[in-house]
Write a protein that binds this DNA or RNA. Structure first.
Length: 361
DNA sequence: GATACGTGGGA
DNA sequence: TTCCCAAGTAT
């Protein structure tokens, strides 16, 4: 017998999670809240998202508030969540939605917005607007491959898995409650049909699950082997004046950590930097009032596709020259650093620069 | 289709 | 420690 949506929905009605962006049972969620949470939840855990979601609603109560905000304030509110293109697209999207007077209510309109792909469009359509579509995320892929014992590895099998997942939503009970059905699949994937050791005995679909029957559920979905993670090296410089101001700069708008702030530094490359090499990239040439550079230690940071080793150097200067701003430098008070658009990597660098034991140059 | 794109937590 | 992962999208 096939998995019956009615069994999943009955389970959901008893075990649904309460989450900040979710409406109460029987109510429809605010599209702004649904959209904001869905963008934040892309490749990101619920636990990590919750405090950011609250902070965003505090700072940007409506999509119009978000649209009117300065990009830098949006980036600062996003700092630490990662995948910063999401924040840039979020801001652009808010402006489009604000101009249009609200979110589009159909898949095509949603799909046309920046940062919204097939999954997020379907999630918003189902959860906020009640369209009978099944958003296919990692949870739904996992549940589906197990239910039907689909053993072809990701990502090649993605299309076939999505087609199979869509059939789950065909039943009348699912079409009658698209929002609940989508979120029921999420909750099942998050709480029962988990990646490592699924709690099949608690699963409302256990009797219908081919993966469980065959004893292969925990091994699904199969995944293609991942490439080894290369190592890159860089050096960044912590220069602080007598008043405690720190020198920062803005990264390019696109690409890794795009639009975020950083300590000045070298490029990140496969070859390690010698100290002499790195020092040719100091933000300020030796001048009166500038101390010697001291080595503060090394920060290791793991990105999605490479591991980065950063050597951190620190120096003091009496007063920043006026020319520093002309070269793209941003002078920031040390007590305002918390509120700035600094990615986690740079917070690590600041931490080691400000608290680490100094060794001589 | 393959690759770029963050981060922190858990096994 | 090391590896894997988490409500994907853009190019």
């Amino acid at each position: 017998m096939p998995p019956l949506p009615v069994d999943l929905l009955r389970w959901y009605d008893r075990h649904r999670r309460t989450l900040p962006w979710r409406a109460l049972p029987g109510r429809t969620a605010d599209p702004y809240h649904v959209w904001l949470s869905e963008i934040m939840l892309q490749q990101t855990t619920v636990a990590a998202v919750i405090p950011y979601f609250h902070r965003f609603l505090d700072r940007f109560p409506t999509v119009a508030d978000l649209a009117r905000a300065r990009q830098d304030d949006v980036m600062a509110a996003w700092a630490g969540l990662g995948y910063y293109a999401r924040a840039r697209n979020l801001h652009t999207c808010a402006q489009a939605v604000d101009r249009a007077g609200g979110f589009p209510r159909d898949m095509a309109g949603l799909l046309a917005l920046p940062g919204i792909g097939p999954y997020t469009a379907a999630a918003i359509a189902a959860i906020a607007f009640g369209h009978p579509v099944v958003p296919v995320d990692g949870n739904v892929e996992r549940v589906t491959t197990r239910l039907f014992a689909l053993t072809d590895p990701l990502p090649a099998a993605r299309k076939a898995i999505a087609l199979q997942a869509a059939t789950l939503g065909d039943a009348a009970e699912a079409r009658a409650r698209p929002s609940d059905f989508a979120q029921a699949l999420f909750d099942l994937g998050a709480g029962i049909c988990t990646p490592k050791s699924p709690a099949c005995v608690l699963c409302p679909w256990q009797a219908a699950c081919a993966g469980a029957r065959l004893g292969i559920a925990a091994s699904l979905p199969a995944k293609a082997p991942k490439a080894a993670k290369p190592v890159r090296h860089g050096a960044h410089f912590h220069l602080v004046d007598a008043a405690g101001n720190v020198l920062l700069r803005r990264r390019p708008e696109r690409g890794l950590l795009g639009g975020m702030l950083e300590l000045p530094g070298t490029a990140w490359r496969a070859e390690a930097w010698t100290m002499a090499d790195a020092f040719s990239h100091v933000p300020l040439a030796p001048t009166r009032g500038l101390s010697a550079w001291k080595s503060m230690g090394r920060v290791t940071h793991v990105f999605t596709h490479f591991t980065l080793h950063v050597d951190v150097y620190a120096a003091r200067i009496d007063r920043f020259p006026n020319s520093i701003a002309a070269r793209g430098g941003l002078v920031c008070g040390e007590h305002e650093l918390d509120g700035l658009a600094l990615p986690s990597l740079m917070r690590k660098c600041l931490q080691i620069a400000r608290s680490g034991e100094a060794g001589e140059t």
